[in-house]
């Protein structure tokens, strides 16, 4: 726990500075924020921008979500691979190989392109 105490201090100090800068700027600017319409080249927006946004890369997120679980094992494995030698290397790369086969299949299906 004590190893991490500095993090709390650094985080709080930075957040405090952010607040200070905001206060200083509020004094220097002298006025509360200006309410505006969003920038559309001088035209009023037809509708709010916050809406059901159609991201074109959502298939890639599925690939990512499945693949990144493997990082849970990767970091602890990195610590012991030297001690455990070839067996650990073979095992982890077999693990990764299976996943990479999935990536190649996904690539062929066009998952890495925008839909």
């Amino acid at each position: 726990m004590t190893a991490w105490a500095g993090l709390g201090v650094a985080g709080l100090a930075t957040a405090g500075l952010v607040v200070l800068v905001r206060l200083a700027s509020r004094l220097a600017a002298g006025r509360p924020p200006l309410t505006t319409l969003p920038f559309q080249s001088g035209h009023s927006p037809d509708e709010h921008a916050l809406s059901r946004y159609h991201a074109r890369w959502y298939p890639m997120t599925l690939l990512f979500l499945a693949f990144d679980v493997e990082m849970l094992f990767m970091y602890p494995w990195a610590l012991v691979v030297a001690a455990r030698g070839t067996a650990a290397i073979v095992e982890m790369f077999a693990f990764l190989g299976v996943l990479l086969a999935g990536v190649v299949w996904a690539w062929r299906e066009g998952v890495l392109r925008w839909v």
Binding site: L63, V69, A94, L99, G102, W105, E109, V111
Partner: peptide, 21 residues
């Protein structure tokens, strides 16, 4: 876990990807 993740990739994309080869 490895084959499970592989199956997840295939399964999720077969269901969720609107295009195929």
């Amino acid at each position: 876990v490895s084959p499970v993740l592989f199956a997840t990739i295939i399964g999720a994309l077969v269901l969720g990807h609107p295009r195929d080869r």
